[in-house]
Design a protein around this nucleic acid. Structure first.
Lengths: 155, 155
DNA sequence: TCTTGAAACTTTATGCTTGAACTAACTGTC
DNA sequence: GACAGTTAGTTCAAGCATAAAGTTTCAAGA
């Protein structure tokens, strides 16, 4: 038995409101983080994300794996990695047996830089989410975990 | 009395986890919405946002007000409005008494287009947030409302 | 071996986004 | 009226993001 129309309407509106609010908050937090990364480490969120993914893979990742794990397009990762290579945080390593692919790995300098940034990053997030208790975090985390619906590819 | 160190550490990690999850979900939902707008209406999320803001202001908004209400940079709005003007959804109107400023307003065509898209948009969000009950929405909405901390400029 | 198709990347065109520099116009105050 | 400072907007350079097209390499079957 489905809910009455009026009730579905109300739920739909409520979800829209929630979505807009989520969007506002994430954008605000993202903006704050981006600003800090820029000012304090002359870096960016996408660079940070790439380095973060690489840090968890001591042997590096293929471009492929990188873009899939970050859920961004292939071409996008090419550019970000280019810039990371340029400033020495990351290196491209040939894969023997497959000349199409390359492995991307943090350099020691890149690893150091990331470690520093990661500590700061956690502190910023912790401060920005000041109003969130451990219970809140758990509860919302649970809900978010099963969202969004129907997009498949849950990870 | 402050909480013990270990407990604060745990809370910090939990908040970081929550943030990463929020980021993942919003990006996923955003990507889905962007894709739909592109395929079905040959439009984009930023254009939609601008039109949405304008729709609530029958007399239009100054570029200034627009960028403040969307929380994006001035220069950014210039470009988006340029493109909206190009395809006839929006018009720039001189303000008498101040030749620096212009008022931006939806054209009738733009208003129609937006109405159509807005209905579809609500439907998409409703479907994407399928797992969210009205209580969930309320609860999370409440929490999000007081986030993020310390950034001032609440809305 | 040849060739067909897939896979791994890069390139390109377009658009969004920011911060910073710039132009033009307005608002005092002397 | 001149001018200093502010306000409104645009322009610019750089980077991020996507989709689509292109290149090189690999794998497998005829």
């Amino acid at each position: 038995m489905t809910a009455p129309f009026a009730q579905q309407e109300a739920l739909s509106k409520e979800r829209l409101r929630l979505w807009l609010r989520m969007l506002r908050v994430t954008r605000q937090v993202e903006a704050a983080l981006r600003e800090r990364l820029r000012v304090e480490y002359d870096s960016t969120l996408p660079r940070f994300d790439v380095m973060s993914a690489l840090q968890r893979a001591p042997d590096g990742l293929k471009m492929n794996e990188l873009s899939r794990s970050l859920r961004v397009s292939n071409g996008n990762v090419t550019g970000i990695v280019d810039r990371l290579v340029e400033d020495g945080s990351v290196e491209r390593i040939a894969i023997e047996g497959d000349r199409r692919a390359t492995r991307v790995r943090l350099t020691p300098a890149g690893r150091d830089a990331f470690t520093t940034m990661a500590v700061a990053h956690e502190g910023w997030v912790n401060a920005l989410l000041d109003g969130v208790t451990e219970e809140d975090a758990h509860h919302i985390g649970e809900l978010l975990h099963r969202l969004p619906a129907e997009t498949g590819e849950r990870q």
